[in-house]
Computed example of a mutant assay.
Amino acid sequence: MADTVHTPRVFSGIKPSGGLTLGNYLGAIKKFVATQGSMETIYCVVDLHAITVWQDPDDLRNATREVAAGYLASGLDPSQSILFNQSQVSAHAELGWIFNCVARVGWMNRMTQFKEKAGKNAEKQSLGLYAYPSLMAADILLYHATQVPVGEDQKQHVELTRDIAAKFNHDYKVDFFPQPDPVIDGPATRVMNLRDGTKKMSKSGQSDMERINMTDDADTIAKKFKKARTDPEPLPETYDGLAERPEARNLVDIYAALSDVTPAEVVTEYAGAGWGQFKPALADLAVSKLAPISEEMARMMDDPAEIDRVLAEGADRARAIADPILAKTYEIVGMVGR
C-alpha cells in the first residue's frame, strides 16, 4: 500500500492545573503563536488530563478558562488556530480507549513521568494517571497531526504516540495514522526554578518566588527576577562558561527566549557584566513582554462568557476534523454501525 500523504498539521495542549507559568509561555505558548499561519494549527486545553489527579470542579473551570485566556492574550488568534478544551470533543476519550487496547503495559511501565509523579505511592494513583499517555496519543492522532511542539520532558510521550500509530497501522494492515514529530527548539525549552536552577520551574513549587506566573503584574515580575538566585561570578565570555552555573544559565536562557536571540548572543552582549547590571535588564525585558499579557488575561477573566464562546466555536471546528477520523478508525477496527 502506498504511503498516505498527511496534511502538515500542528497539535499541542496545556493542562489546566495550578496556573500558567513562564515555563508554559516560553516552552509552549510563544512557539504556538509563532507557528500559526504557517500551517493548520490546533491548540487545546487538556482538561481530561487534569483529572488524572482530583480537581476541585470550580478550580478546574477557572483554570481551564485561565489557560484559554493565556493562549488568547499571548496572541493566538481563533481565526487562524483552532482553540478549544478537550472535554468538548468526546472523540478524544473514544480514541483514547481504542489506543488503550493497542498500547502495551510494558510501554506504559517505561514512562518516566508516571514514575516521577507517582513516587512511592504508585498503587494509590488513578488508572488515568498511569494510562494518560495513550490519551495523549489520541489527542495528537485524532487530528492526524504531523508536528507536536513540546518541552523536552514530553518527548517520550510523542515517541510513544509514534509507537501506537505504528502498531495500529501494522495490526490492521493500513497506513492510516501518521508518525508525528516532536518539535523541541530554541532557548529556554525547559525553564528552570528561579531559586534552584537544577529544578524545573513548576506550578506546584513551595514558594511563589520560584516561578513567574503568567498572572503576575509588572511589579511582581520585576521583583522576582531581581531576587532570583545567582552566583558571585560575572557573566563569562562564552555561553560554554555557564555549563556548571545552572542559575546563571537559566537567566541567560530566559533573556534569550524573551528577546528572540541566541543565548550566545546574550553572553556576548553582557560578557563581564555583574548581576547588578544583568538582572535589572532582564526584569525590564520581562515586564515589557509579559505584563501586557497578564493585563489582558485579567481583563478576559472578568468576561468568562467570551472565553467560553471562543472555546465552544473551536470545539465545533475541532469536531469537524476529528469525527471523520474517529469514524474511519471504528470502521478499520470492525465496529458495526459506525
Rank of each mutant, 00 (worst) to 15 (best):
Q80M: 10
R162L: 09
N193M: 00
A218Y: 09
Q80Y: 00
S12C: 02
R190H: 07
K199F: 08
D58G: 06
M300A: 05
L135H: 07
R190L: 15
D316T: 02
P178N: 07
G276V: 00
E94M: 05
D77P: 11
Y270F: 15
W97A: 06
T146S: 14
D208W: 00
S12D: 05
K117E: 11
Q125I: 08
K223S: 15
A63I: 04
K328I: 03
P304M: 12
M192S: 08
P234R: 02
L285G: 13
V150D: 04
G241C: 01
N24Y: 02
D208L: 07
A138T: 12
S81M: 03
D175A: 06
N121Y: 13
Q125S: 13
A320V: 12
A165K: 01
Y172S: 12
K223F: 14
L72I: 14
R195D: 10
K223W: 15
Q154T: 05
K328Y: 12
G27C: 06
M136P: 04
Y43T: 00
T146H: 09
P8N: 06
G96K: 01
A50Y: 08
Q113G: 11
K173L: 08
T329K: 02
K15F: 02
R249W: 00
A273H: 10
G205L: 04
T64H: 03
V102I: 15
K117P: 14
G119D: 14
I293Y: 10
V267A: 09
Y43P: 07
A188Q: 05
K224I: 09
I164V: 15
E244T: 10
N250T: 01
A256C: 12
K173A: 15
L235N: 03
A73D: 07
L72H: 04
V10F: 10
Q125T: 13
K328F: 10
A69W: 09
R319V: 12
E313P: 11
D175H: 09
S288P: 13
S259K: 10
D240S: 14
G274E: 10
I164A: 02
I321M: 15
V148M: 03
W107H: 11
V102G: 07
T220C: 04
A327F: 03
A137N: 01
V158L: 08
R110Q: 09
N24G: 01
K279D: 02
A291Y: 02
L251T: 00
P149S: 08
L290C: 01
C101T: 13
I82Q: 01
W275R: 02
E247S: 13
R65C: 12
A286N: 10
L290P: 11
H144D: 08
K31C: 04
A2N: 09
K31P: 04
G19Y: 06
D171S: 14
A318K: 05
D316I: 05
T146E: 12
L142P: 14
F168P: 09
V252K: 00
D59F: 03
T146R: 07
D219C: 03
A320S: 15
R229H: 06
T329P: 15
T329D: 11
M192P: 08
R110M: 13
R65I: 07
D208F: 06
L20I: 00
A122Q: 04
L135A: 12
L251E: 01
T262G: 11
